[in-house]
């Protein structure tokens, strides 16, 4: 489903991260682990096309991500990649439903309230449809952000520390939701985490070594 080869990222001229080659099949579930600073978020962002590596290629769903022009890359991301972040960060000026309509609009897809209601009811937050984000509990907000990630039926769902600020009950619930939703749309799921509670649930691990500093020219 995706294939990363020879990815290197220069933070500064002397501080370079190089990542192992990584291949995943459609529908796979992967855990991306490693201590803080090992480049989990950087790799995840490169996988989402939010950041360009200094070197290397990423083929995602048959598309060579880093050769796409700016607008094309944005559109590709909107339609194929769902992102779940550590904090839900819904747009505070919009209702839950408007947040999800925006998700369809920004991806350049038709706006479909029925699909939104469907996803919200699966995540059992349908009654919050007309609520503003500040009226939601943390767990509800995190579920809406999962709804946002799966709404456009992406091929790849990337979750960056989705459980780190949640208690045990909510942590398991979020993982359940991510797994079932990824399965429901046949998406590949990658969870970047250092949360020990997550590790036993998913078989495929990619462990990033601690900071790999390379001195001199490469």
């Amino acid at each position: 489903m995706f294939q990363l080869t020879g990815i290197r990222y220069n933070y500064t001229t002397t501080h370079t991260l190089s990542f192992p080659d990584w291949t995943a099949a459609q529908g796979d579930r992967w855990l991306l682990t490693g201590v803080s600073g090992s480049g989990k978020t950087t790799l995840l962002h490169m996988l989402a096309g939010l950041r360009q590596p200094t070197q290397g290629t990423a083929i995602i769903a048959g598309t060579n991500l880093y050769t796409l022009s700016g607008n094309k890359a944005d559109q590709f991301r909107g339609q194929n990649i769902g992102l779940v972040l550590q904090k839900p960060h819904l747009l505070s000026v919009l209702t839950v439903e408007e947040n999800l309509l925006l998700t369809q609009y920004m991806a350049g897809l038709p706006q479909n309230k029925q699909r939104i209601a469907e996803v919200l009811s699966i995540l059992s937050v349908l009654e919050k449809r007309k609520s503003m984000p500040h009226q939601l509990s943390q767990g509800q907000a995190q579920r809406i952000s999962i709804a946002r990630a799966v709404l456009n039926l992406p091929k790849l769902i990337l979750a960056d520390e989705p459980t780190s600020s949640l208690d045990d009950v909510n942590c398991m619930r979020v993982l359940d939701l991510l797994e079932t939703q990824a399965a429901a749309c046949g998406a590949t799921l990658v969870i970047a985490t250092h949360d020990a509670r997550v590790k036993n649930r998913i078989a495929n691990h990619l462990h990033l070594e601690s900071v790999q500093t390379v001195l001199g020219t490469l």
């Binding site: 989402a48 939010l50 700016g70 607008n71 944005d74 559109q75 991301r77 909107g78 339609q79 992102l83 960060h89 747009l91 505070s92 925006l102 998700t103 920004m106 991806a107 350049g108 946002r148």
Partner: peptide, 16 residues
């Protein structure tokens, strides 16, 4: 800034 970054992750171009 965060809102705008979120919009970019949702597929919004810089021009948008």
């Amino acid at each position: 800034q965060y809102d705008l970054a979120i919009m970019r992750t949702l597929g919004a171009s810089q021009n948008k």
